[in-house]
């Protein structure tokens, strides 16, 4: 008997990870938002539909769920959702942090999340707020402080763009001084609003080279003290890899539809109408669908097509 790393997603009875965008409403208008979030979708899942999916997540013993949005803390049932999942699965919440005050931080601490990820796109208010329109750097930093004070595993996510890429070292130092659990970063994904603003946002090769050099330096500097994780591939490289090795995960969007993967427009199920287990089977088959494979190859050749990723196509 051995402990192995290699796993074929097709052998699994259910996904291992659910990335769930529970709403589309957001108080910010980030220039690089993959979801093009802002206003609510007209057909978002209602409370009953959401709880129906939650029960299935628990029944299928799905070990890890990430709740995001839009801004998930704006969802009217956010805390009920988390309370339901508490102790049954690991929960990560991805938020801009702007609604986390002392009271909310205490409430979150009681929910025993795996982590809360706060988006912090700069080491200074000017940089962060230039990219995250309507955002407030002070509030995001305060959210980190309050969560850490309450003992919540707090992570910072940083998306490099032309506006902020030079601040990565400073941001990591700041994260360490705040006492965060980890910093996550990687190349900006050319999806959604980021695709629309690509020329304005995408760093140059040289900027990326400096960025990764600083990251590697900081990884050494904070080894054993703070987790620094970066995903070295861009969305095209990720897509190439996933065509061969799809992830054991599902991406649920606010209206209950399930996407095959963020960068492609394909929908492999609808949780308002179908069971999660059936959508999982559709997902497995979906990756073999010639329509998917041909389009993915086209996207790899013409990355401009990534701008189509939120114009859904049902499989």
């Amino acid at each position: 008997m051995e402990l192995l790393h290699k796993i074929d997603f097709k052998d699994l009875k259910a996904p291992l990870f659910i990335a769930w965008q529970i709403n589309s409403e957001c108080n910010l208008g980030c220039l690089h938002c993959c979801e093009e979030a802002g206003h609510s979708m007209p057909d978002e899942m209602n409370k009953e539909e959401i709880f129906n999916v939650l029960e299935q997540i628990v029944d299928l013993k799905i070990p890890y769920v990430a709740l995001s949005g839009g801004e998930p803390l704006l969802h009217p049932n956010f805390f009920e959702i988390c309370e339901f999942l508490k102790d049954k699965t690991s929960i990560k919440v991805e938020t801009n942090g702007e609604f986390i005050d002392e009271r909310i931080a205490k409430k979150i601490a009681n929910l025993k999340f795996r982590s809360v990820q706060i988006s912090l796109d700069g080491a200074t208010p000017f940089t962060h707020e230039r990219l995250r329109l309507g955002g407030n750097w002070e509030k995001a930093v305060m959210a980190c402080k309050l969560l850490i004070k309450e003992g919540v595993n707090t992570e910072i996510v940083f998306v490099p763009t032309k506006f902020n890429i030079q601040e990565i070292g400073q941001l990591i130092d700041m994260a360490y001084s705040l006492g965060v659990y980890g910093v996550y970063t990687g190349k900006i994904m050319r999806i959604g609003r980021a695709a629309q603003n690509w020329r304005m946002l995408c760093p140059s090769e040289q900027e990326y080279e400096n960025f990764f050099a600083i990251l590697n330096e900081k990884i050494k500097q904070y080894d054993g003290k703070m987790k620094i994780y970066y995903y070295p591939y861009d969305v095209i490289e990720e897509l190439k890899y996933r065509l061969e090795y799809p992830a054991a995960s599902l991406l649920i969007i606010p209206n209950g539809k399930v996407k095959l993967i963020g960068p492609l427009p394909f929908i492999c199920g609808d949780l308002k109408k179908q069971k999660l287990i059936d959508v999982w089977e559709n997902y497995k088959i979906g990756w073999q669908n010639p329509k998917v494979r041909e389009f993915a190859k086209k996207v790899i050749e013409q990355p401009k097509l990534l701008a189509e990723s939120n114009k859904w196509v049902e499989l």
């Binding site: 008997m1 051995e2 402990l3 192995l4 790393h5 290699k6 796993i7 052998d11 699994l12 009875k13 291992l16 070990p63 890890y64 690991s90 795996r114 982590s115 595993n153 054991a248």
Partner: peptide, 19 residues
């Protein structure tokens, strides 16, 4: 799982399988 079990360290985001 049918083959045994899947172990997911969700904090470090590492997956293992066993028989």
């Amino acid at each position: 799982e049918k083959f045994g079990a899947v172990i997911f360290d969700t904090l470090r985001e590492k997956v293992f399988v066993t028989n």
